[in-house]
Design a binder for these strands. Structure first.
Lengths: 339, 339
DNA sequence: GTGTTGCAGTAAATCGGTTTACTTATCGTT
DNA sequence: AACGATAAGTAAACCGATTTACTGCAACAC
């Protein structure tokens, strides 16, 4: 069933049917409109999106691009992604758009595809600064980046106060009497949320007069299995830590598991703080103390910007960062009057 | 940049460019092909997907339809969905298709949209039997249902042995000496995985000569907050249970939390078994004993069927159900010689 | 020398919509 | 009565690809 058949059945031209569908009231009399609408309903006719997009040059399609990590190559390797995607989906749907989801190794490779799909806009999750220019230059639809650091680039980015998050993480541990700190984190060398968190963490240590050396950094992927390994390494490594800061919750989960497997108890033997505040923090015992970010807030902000740009046919520049805090639970113990 | 411009630059017709793109070797000489390919690469040209779909009547788009539950209206309300989606995305990508994700209240409402998008195929997650006929009748692209019970309908369904899962759940508890059982479950009246699991559970109890009454059923949504509430209800309800079977992990997580909040310890005071074997089972303390299903298997099977149907332009009928087992962890205690 | 076959390539139709430019009829003004 | 404005509707062009039917031309068989 297509527009031509509807037009024939209603005894009008395609143009008139199109005008009815698109609510161009001034072009159609009430009488004809009703007749056409009746037939459309009877036939259960829905206009072909492809044909419409072709001429309108808009698709009501929003791309969501998620870089994958590790070898699993799915977005759930870090559940954080899943939360964000779930929230974004909700807002995309609420705005009557459609979500095209794609995980990628290198986000740059997806850009030509996005434009060949005529997507009206896109969200990019966790892109690195040096990937931004290529993305921007290859496509000029509205894009909202989440958790990207690219000062100087004219983009819309929604994130959190990562520096402050790292800072709070360290401050919190220190306030509980810890001074022998380990840090478990993905690569801190690229510009990005992790580097910022690390900087905050480092500065807080310095301010408190606590020596924090590169040797206290344990490298991991943002995946559970990788972090379990690190937990074991720490357990066996003989480093004399009283607390471990993790740069994401999924890493903290893994580290705790790794420690447990080696007979080390959290928080009695060693304290652990996470970052993200995934709902799973509540599930475990001890419940994970974590630096909290609000996914819903992020997704809402990001969507607001994206749809403002799409509907206003304009480009905005913004860098909004959510104010965050530590959610205190049970995985960090106060070192009171013991050493 | 479109095909006409490429054709002009290369001094050939659109048809030739099209033939180059689509690898119709017999229609183009090597010389021309190379020239055209060079220009395509130089210009970074990608054919417009919409235009191609319009004439080819295929879009390389796969719909993934996820019913939402509760009032959150996002797929993460039950993390189980997120796992399946993540796996499906991986296989869809591997087959060079694109994933259109949509959560819905009523799955039937999405069908006209799918067809207006010319999607080449679709996955429906957790649809009820009585929704199937309408879905099938409104659209005739290949569809694979996951976790649907619709005997007699000519569909492809991929699921697990739910009856056996419920049966194993009860058997396991009983084998550990439990006889005072509660069941926490979403509505068991609709045909579907839950009803099957319930039937298995019920039969296992009967076989073992253990009375299981409707009064031992606690109703919940498949969401964490709802299950927490139920956990509290059970704690306060004074029912003298030694073990609780939950029909999904997310529910078990919530129940355990609810119990904990009321000072009841798992598994010392009461045992809990889940269903799904989400990775989160490993995170918590006690680690959750659960009836295991393998998401990756499901997504792989489902994709194999879908792409076989799409590429073979045929309809298949199948009902494959994964053989499942109980993964024993720590949330169920053996009631040895204590009443 | 004629007929057949295969190769390389093209013009035009097509997919299912939207949009533009144009027509006709009706009405109100002056 | 002539003029313009507005309302209602249409034919045809267009979006960017694919596909069909056709054209020359060279090679080959008989």
């Amino acid at each position: 069933m297509n527009i031509t058949e509807i037009a024939k059945k209603a005894g009008v031209s395609k143009a008139t049917v199109s005008n009815v569908i698109n609510g161009k009231l001034s072009k159609v009399s009430d009488e004809t409109r009703e007749r056409v609408e009746k037939i459309i309903k009877e036939e259960g006719y829905k206009p072909n999106v492809m044909a419409r997009s072709l001429v309108k040059k808009e698709s009501r399609l929003i791309g969501v691009v998620v870089p994958y990590l590790g070898k699993d190559e799915d977005f759930f390797a870090n559940p954080y992604n899943a939360h964000i995607i779930a929230s974004l989906e909700k807002f995309i749907r609420a705005n009557d758009y459609y979500l095209m989801l794609r995980c990628v190794g290198d986000p740059r490779e997806i850009v030509p595809l996005l434009s060949s799909w005529n997507v009206d806009g896109a969200f990019f999750l966790g892109i690195y600064k040096d990937e931004v220019p290529q993305i921007k230059s290859q496509i000029d639809i509205p894009i909202v980046f989440l958790d990207t650091y690219a000062p100087g680039e004219e983009i819309v980015n929604i994130g959190i106060e990562d520096y402050r998050g790292g800072y709070l993480s360290a401050r919190y541990l220190i306030s509980k009497g810890h001074s022998k700190l380990a840090l478990v984190t993905p690569d801190i060398s690229s510009e990005g949320v992790i580097k910022e968190r690390y900087r905050g963490f480092y500065d807080a240590c310095r301010e408190a007069g606590i020596p924090f050396k590169k040797g206290n950094i344990y490298n991991t992927e943002s995946t559970y299995p990788s972090a379990v390994q690190v937990g074991q390494d720490i357990a066996f490594g003989g480093g004399d830590y009283t607390a471990i800061a993790c740069m994401s919750d999924i890493v903290a989960f893994g580290v705790i598991e790794g420690l447990k497997q080696c007979g080390i108890r959290v928080p009695y033997d060693i304290s652990v703080i996470g970052f993200d505040n995934l709902p799973d923090c509540e599930l475990m015992t001890p419940k994970l103390t974590s630096v909290a970010q609000d996914f819903e807030w992020k997704a809402k902000k990001a969507s607001d910007y994206l749809f403002k740009m799409i509907e206003g046919k304009c480009h905005l520049v913004a860098d909004e960062r959510q104010h965050i805090r530590v959610v205190e639970r049970q995985s960090v113990r106060a070192l009171s009057d013991r050493t």
